[in-house]
């Protein structure tokens, strides 16, 4: 770990000011501390933002606003979240361990770094960690890497469960920067790696995630998050699916689908959604929608299994939702 300075921000503006000067925010620290221990992150100044507010879950008729500094466990325990957004609760409860969920914040979770083995190994070339050095995973140990949204420069998966559920729920992320607040659709918040995998989001210098807005939607009540992984707990997804469905008389009115563990960012499945809407919510439409999920998938060696796994995960999630109707 490099020598660094540690300061506590008294308010958001102090935090933003520090970030403009190059500070790195720290909240729960569940990811950043690991990165620092391995020399992947080497901030000169750590700005602790735990004291700037933006913690807690507040709901009104239109939606739920979750403070960026709310701990994951608190979000999962919130009665409104539990009632209106089962997919969010399930995504959080399948994340990491109880201890981690007690520390990790919503904002930090959305910005956590990939588990690509090469990103985490300082000795390996990695365009995301060290731009221009190359992608070791492309021809290397890529069993956990992405089959969707990748480029020749990076095939790292986005690791967050929560982000997948939030993308499916049309969540917006509330950003605060030197020029005030702005709101961005979470799906658009993440960038594809293309030729700059080191730039992962649209965050501007000094900008801070201060909250997440979850618009109340009929579909979200009937929703699920299904996560597939090698071990039964405390592991990132090999494939996951967040789905929310609204039906009327057996016909799909609204469908929201996103997948995780398979793509370089939380991956919304617009074509699969379109394949469902307006049709009876039955096995035929579900299978078709699931098959479309893998459209454009480009496996790289050891991750080829993710293509059928992705399809199976989407199909299972939708079938379970159908059963839960």
């Amino acid at each position: 770990m490099n020598p660094f300075r540690y300061r506590t921000a008294a308010d958001p503006d102090a935090a933003i000011g520090a970030a403009l000067g190059g500070a790195t925010f720290i909240a729960g620290g569940t990811d950043l501390i690991q990165l620092m221990q391995e020399g992947i992150a080497a901030p000169d100044l750590l700005m602790d933002i735990n004291g700037i507010g933006y913690s807690g879950v507040a709901s009104d008729l239109d939606g739920i606003r979750i403070g960026a500094l709310t701990r994951l466990a608190e979000v999962a325990d919130d009665p409104t979240v539990r009632a209106r957004f089962p997919l969010v609760r399930e995504a959080i409860e399948s994340t990491a361990s109880g201890q981690v969920r007690n520390m990790a914040t919503v904002g930090g979770n959305l910005l956590q770094k990939t588990r690509c083995l090469y990103f985490r190994d300082r000795a390996a070339p990695c365009n995301k960690r060290a731009p221009g050095t190359g992608c070791s995973a492309f021809e290397g140990q890529n069993r956990i890497n992405a089959v969707l949204g990748a480029s020749a420069h990076c095939i790292a998966t986005h690791p967050s469960d929560l982000a997948v559920a939030l993308v499916a729920a049309d969540a917006e992320v509330i950003l605060r920067g030197p020029a005030g607040e702005r709101t961005v659709l979470l799906e658009s918040f993440y960038r594809l790696p293309e030729d700059r995998p080191d730039i992962e989001t649209v965050l501007e210098p000094g900008e801070l995630i201060v909250g997440v807005w979850l618009p109340i939607a009929a579909a979200a009540r009937r929703s699920r998050y299904v996560k597939v992984r090698d071990r039964a707990s405390f592991e990132w997804a090999l494939a996951s699916c967040a789905a929310a469905i609204a039906t009327d008389g057996g016909e799909v009115l609204e469908a929201r689908l996103a997948v995780g563990g398979v793509a370089t960012k939380p991956w919304r499945l617009a074509r699969s959604e379109a394949a469902l809407v307006g049709r009876p919510f039955g096995p035929g439409a579900i299978r078709e929608a699931a098959a479309l999920a893998a459209e454009g998938a480009e496996p790289r060696g050891r991750n080829a299994y993710k293509v059928p796994l992705l399809v199976a995960t989407v199909e299972r999630t939708l079938m379970e939702l159908r059963g839960a109707g």
């Binding site: 083995l117 985490r120 190994d121 000795a123 390996a124 070791s136 290397g140 071990r231 039964a232």
Partner: peptide, 21 residues
Amino acid sequence: DSRNGRVINNNLGDYLLPTNA
């Protein structure tokens, strides 16, 4: 990694051991 003989899942997040579950 077959290119350099490096064991690259050399931590308990990536070298998986059974959890209670």
